[in-house]
Design a protein around this nucleic acid. Structure first.
Lengths: 211, 211
DNA sequence: GCGGTGTGTTGACGGTGGTAACATTCAGCG
DNA sequence: CGCTGAATGTTACCACCGTCAACACACCGC
């Protein structure tokens, strides 16, 4: 029963990956994260109970999908950082990359930061690790900028740095969600989302610059 | 069969209100918006199909709950505005009221701005109306401040005003969600959320002040 | 070749959203 | 008062869902 496909490492193939792909496909097509496990299985061409050999739960499947999202977001941000120069430029790049990812993958973004997962605790450690690292990266950029005098922040004041981190994250997170939820559309024309994102990010940066 | 209660305008009482109350109770108790319609009915002491006499859909029930949330948020903001003076003070008051509402009603807030509703279009017109008005209020405050010279914004530049509006809304929205989702907790101690909210709001205002 | 283990299937259970047919109660009107 | 129709609530049912246990198959090392 050898078909054209290359290595099929298991019994019937790499079902875990197939399920993940099906779930992601449904997610991006319908824009909804409340798909049924059975539909995912159906789409992957297996029986409805097969997924339980690879995911303990429906929630585990969703968490796995979310994890891929976190990883993609992470690489988006790191490549953006690599291509940017200077504290201000780096912060700008991070913001734009973050917003760009969210707007490009609205359903996935909502799944990642939505409700599906039971509060942030109780998530798979891998997810928490990526989140924590993302925040650390942001903090590092702001701290570097503060030390270089690019931002009006005392690098020794832990609280002040934290406030800046939370502010920046809140802004891009909120903007991304408002855009995804089309709350923003009626304020500006949709084709200028990039421009709007840039200007919103700029507002943040202006607020951080030394006078 | 007259009980102590006053007018029971209908057959078995004001079931619509009772269902709404049950749903809200479950929401605040469990913190999850994905309750079952049947549980709501059970809690209200009626059969599971009774709700269909008052709400066309489960989604309609959820939308009705969300509407009460929007209205509460609206009154929170307007009373905050009434008690504040000056453009800067008003903006600060709005931000704090908004964040305060979200943090005090996490589940409701998530339901309002989450995923349960199918994008922002297709919502009951009443919901859209409240949202639109909220944005108009915010815009008015910023515009007034810009005209008075309290903010470094050209009041005649529609785009610039819009950017400021979206920035402000994004910031409070994002901060509220990050706080609700406990993403922020490990950055600062939880008992200082108010302080943090104040300082984050302050960062926004500083960014708007004229140099 | 053989047994065990990993993998997928079948079938069942309780629970869910939604509908249709039925039962009940209320309001209006003679 | 008694009748009638509409509003309200109940029962019974459907297809579907998540999950589990029992079963069937296919691959591995021996």
């Amino acid at each position: 029963m050898n078909t054209v496909a290359s290595a099929a490492p298991y019994h019937h193939g790499d079902l875990r990956r197939a399920l993940l792909d099906s779930a992601t496909a449904i997610l991006t097509e319908t824009g909804r994260w409340d798909f049924s496990l059975r539909e995912v299985a159906r789409r992957a061409g297996v029986s409805h109970a097969a997924s339980y050999r690879h995911f303990t739960d429906k929630e585990a499947l969703i968490a796995a999908v979310a994890l891929t999202g976190y990883e993609t977001l992470h690489t988006c941000m790191t490549t953006a950082i690599d291509e940017a120069t200077g504290a201000v430029g780096t912060l700008r790049a991070i913001g734009q990359a973050y917003i760009g990812f969210g707007v490009a993958n609205p359903a996935l973004y909502r799944l990642m930061f939505g409700q599906a997962l039971p509060s942030i605790e109780g998530l798979p450690p891998a997810v928490l690790a990526v989140l924590t690292e993302a925040r650390a990266v942001l903090r590092g950029v702001i701290l570097t900028g503060a030390r270089a005098g690019a931002f009006a922040i005392d690098p020794e004041d832990e609280q002040e740095v934290s406030v800046a981190v939370v502010t920046a994250w809140s802004l891009v997170h909120g903007f991304t969600l408002l855009t995804i939820d089309r709350v923003v559309d009626r304020e500006v024309r949709p084709q200028v989302i990039d421009t709007l994102a840039a200007r919103v990010t700029e507002r943040l940066i202006v607020g951080l610059l030394p006078t």
